[in-house]
Design a protein around this nucleic acid. Structure first.
Length: 471
RNA sequence: GUGGCCUUGGUAUAACGGUUAUUACGUGAGAUUGUGGAUCUCGCAACACGGGUUCAACUCCCGUAGGCCACCCCA
């Protein structure tokens, strides 16, 4: 009753307020409370608690892989000198030219929100003299990246990436190891993926190939779409992933970079593929695969979900979950002692979307960490005792759910039911006095009154019958 | 950066140039005293924002913001 009263009063006050501030309201919508409500900046998004199971699982999977494959976590700043990215990613790439969050700080330094992390990893490798360490140096990262792009399904201005990098070794086994890790990441998450792979050679080879490609496309110019005519001058390699119907025949006949690779590059590529065969990592050779960042050499790859029959609507056309490749010249280019390197990064948002969708369409349940029991309490004394008991159980490793704002036992059991806990612990006035507690089996409804001192052991014993099934 | 579609409670939705703005999920209280997975009752909660047309706009028009889709590009 008093609750209602205050609410009415509140509403009135708020109303007066909004009238007064109306002129300042600008474009923001009033919230339920009547005050100014903020909308998110374009391309930004909240990751809500209900998504947590996917994110947590993704993070743990990455962390676990890092431990097994001996990668050290590197955390670089989100803000760096703008030039770092311009130099590494390359002038002329869209990421640098159109999509960088770049601005001047208070001291007029040109800074940028990182659009990816490889540049920073290389910077760190050089800055901390990591070439003096045992090679290769293996590092991984996880965190937000920023690109001022136009948002779309599976594309945000702030998004998260997880990445793995190996610096200081040119052996193809490193390429394979990384592809294996990327593949394992999804395997562990329960999402089947395919690896698209190609080799784009070293710059000299690529240059020769580009010339040949341009020459070929010039001869077919009249058959091309407008975009491709542009690409012909601007970014010839991109001709290869044009989606226009009319360009397909031209594309199919186009020269393939593989024929322009010299012995060494070709061998490297073959070795990578041999390793993948050995590891049973499914891959698809994609002669048209090139990547958007300038620094890649030789191996490039992308990861795509295998969704089966049902086509995905949620990811739209942004279906690549991630990608990577070798960048043997970048460290030197960035001013370090020459060091070959490979790496990849995966988009977490896209991965989560794909995983969710895969589990939905297959009608599978994504594994959740379950709680062991629900603690229900009745009355003030019982509540106090309940909090204490809960805390003791927590210390012994048991997860106990509860809701102290619900007064009725009925309401609490309803909640226990919706949480699907196997047991409810009921503590009322009577139990507090007797030093007992009720353990209720939520499936059968059978209850047992037990001594509070024996609760922990008994509960653990009961839970042990679920071992393997739960968690 | 280009083009198109869209915006109603927390979510999903209905409707109409004039209604107390529909329904479901959700959420809260309750259906005799301390027992869930069923039903019922009663609450909570929305027309994105600004401007225009009109006697009258949630509805029509314009702008802003945001979302979605395709291209570009990429995670």
């Amino acid at each position: 009753m008093p609750k209602q009263k205050t609410k009415v009063v509140k509403k009135k006050i708020v109303k007066i307020k909004t009238d007064k501030t109306k002129s300042r309201a600008e474009s923001s919508a009033p919230s339920a409370g009547g005050k100014k409500a903020y909308s998110l900046l374009r391309g930004m998004h909240d990751i809500l608690p209900k998504e947590e199971k996917y994110w947590k699982s993704a993070y743990h999977t990455a962390e676990n892989l890092a431990e097994h494959f001996q990668f050290g976590r590197l955390e670089t700043p989100i803000l760096e000198e703008a030039g770092l990215f311009v130099r590494s990613i390359g002038k002329g790439t869209d990421v640098v030219d159109k999509e960088m969050y770049i601005f001047e700080d208070r001291d007029s330094n040109k800074v940028a929100l990182r659009p990816e992390d490889t540049a920073s990893v290389v910077r760190a490798y050089i800055m901390h003299g990591m070439w003096n360490m045992v090679q290769p140096v293996k590092m991984w990262y996880w965190g937000p990246m920023f690109r001022y792009d136009r948002p779309q399904a599976g594309r945000f201005r702030q998004f998260n990436q997880v990445g793995f990098e190996i610096l200081g070794d040119a052996d193809p086994v490193q390429d394979a190891e990384l592809i294996l890790i990327a593949h394992n990441f999804y395997k562990d998450l329960g999402l089947p993926v395919e690896i698209y792979i190609n080799s784009i050679g070293v710059p000299e080879e690529r240059q020769k190939y580009k010339t040949a490609l341009v020459e070929y496309y010039r001869s077919k110019r009249s058959y091309l779409c407008d975009d491709c005519k542009q690409r012909l001058n601007k970014n010839p390699l991109r001709l290869l992933d044009c989606k226009q119907e009319r360009c397909q025949p031209v594309k199919e006949e186009a020269p393939q970079i593989i024929s322009w690779l010299e012995e060494e590059s070709k061998n490297h590529f073959m070795k990578v593929l041999e390793y993948l065969d050995e590891l049973a990592v499914p891959y698809v050779l994609k002669p048209t695969l090139v990547r958007g960042l300038d620094y890649y050499t030789r191996t490039v790859f992308e990861v795509y979900p295998v969704m089966g029959e049902t086509e995905d609507a949620t990811l739209g056309s942004q279906t690549a979950l991630g990608g990577g490749g070798r960048y043997d010249l970048l460290v030197e280019e960035m001013g370090g002692k020459p060091a070959p390197a490979v790496g990849f990064s995966l988009g977490i948002e896209r991965s989560v979307t794909a995983v969710k969708q895969y589990f939905d369409t297959k009608q599978l349940k994504f594994p959740v960490q379950q709680v062991d029991a629900f603690m229900a309490q009745l009355g003030d004394q019982a509540r106090r005792r309940a909090l204490k008991t809960m805390n003791e159980l927590r210390a012994s490793g048991l997860k106990i759910a509860y809701n102290f704002s619900k007064g009725s036992l009925k309401g609490q059991l309803e909640m226990a039911n919706s949480l699907q806990v196997p047991y409810a612990l009921i503590l009322g006035q009577k139990e507090v006095q007797d030093g007992t507690i009720i353990i209720r089996d939520m499936e059968s409804g059978v209850q047992e009154i037990v001594d509070q001192k024996k609760l922990e052991n008994l509960l653990k014993k009961k839970l042990s019958r679920f071992d393997g099934e739960r968690k």
